[in-house]
């Protein structure tokens, strides 16, 4: 069932086990995000921002609590179902703009669609070009990812995260490795897409200026939500 709010999290806990030590990193997170919201996730280093995003992105399983995305509970689902769900409904932008270095900008952008269909369809190529155009990189379409600058790579990553028109994009410090100008440009892009496409964004950042451009700010401290501007 693909319905309901974008994200619903109740009593979410996450433990990391290291030998006999069990570290509780998320300590009962409650969170609801509506469709189309643009949310900044702030908090000191180690407060659990990345952990939360990874769990929402179905890349990691929670220790306890419930997670619903688009009304679908994903806690007990197997890897195949999670992978498929990720592919259709969730986009990612990581700090270390992880592109496939031996593939061109366009091939990178098309990847989520090609992985779904088993080939690079013509309509996906067109959409990929359009997305590159949107992030201002149409002239770098056929450059290998390894030949792009950091800021360009991150814009390619943004375009890729939108390829399958996901309802939710999770961005973990997307501007963390960029200079002021590139960071602003990427952030500008994300807010534009949010307004025009209604894509929901959850963006973790240490940058107050970036956070200020979001309509909602959530502060995490020690595995809990300490403040929510909503």
């Amino acid at each position: 069932m693909i319905d309901g709010p974008l994200v619903e999290v109740h009593d979410l806990t996450k433990d990391y086990e290291e030998g006999d030590n069990v570290a509780r990193v998320l300590k009962g997170v409650q969170l609801e995000v509506a469709r189309g919201e643009l949310v900044a996730l702030l908090g000191p280093s180690g407060s659990g921002k990345s952990t939360l995003l990874n769990i929402l992105g179905t890349l990691m399983r929670p220790t306890a609590g419930s997670v619903r995305i688009l009304g679908q509970s994903l806690v007990g689902a197997d890897d195949f179902v999670l992978t498929e769900f990720r592919n259709r409904h969730i986009g990612f932008v990581f700090q270390a703009h992880l592109l496939l270095p031996d593939f061109t900008a366009l091939e990178n952008v098309m990847f989520p669609a090609a992985a779904r269909h088993g080939r690079e369809r013509r309509e996906d190529r067109a959409r990929g070009s359009e997305l590159l155009d949107r992030v201002g990189l149409s002239d770098r379409r056929d450059y290998l990812a390894s030949q792009l600058s950091g800021g360009q790579k991150q814009r390619v990553a943004v375009a890729r995260s939108l390829m399958n028109a996901p309802e939710l994009v999770l961005a973990d410090e997307p501007t963390g490795n960029l200079d002021r100008e590139s960071a602003d440009r990427v952030m500008q892009l994300l807010t534009e897409i949010n307004t025009s496409d209604g894509t929901g964004f959850l963006i973790s950042t240490h940058d107050e200026k970036i956070a200020a451009r979001c309509r909602r700010q959530i502060y995490m401290v020690d595995g809990k939500i300490a403040h929510d501007s909503r």
Binding site: D79, F80, T83, E84, R86, F92, L98, L100, A115
Partner: peptide, 16 residues
């Protein structure tokens, strides 16, 4: 491995 991780995150299945 990081590329494989990214492919998996983008929705590439284990079989792929």
């Amino acid at each position: 491995q990081s590329e494989i991780g990214i492919m998996r995150a983008m929705g590439a299945s284990r079989g792929f």
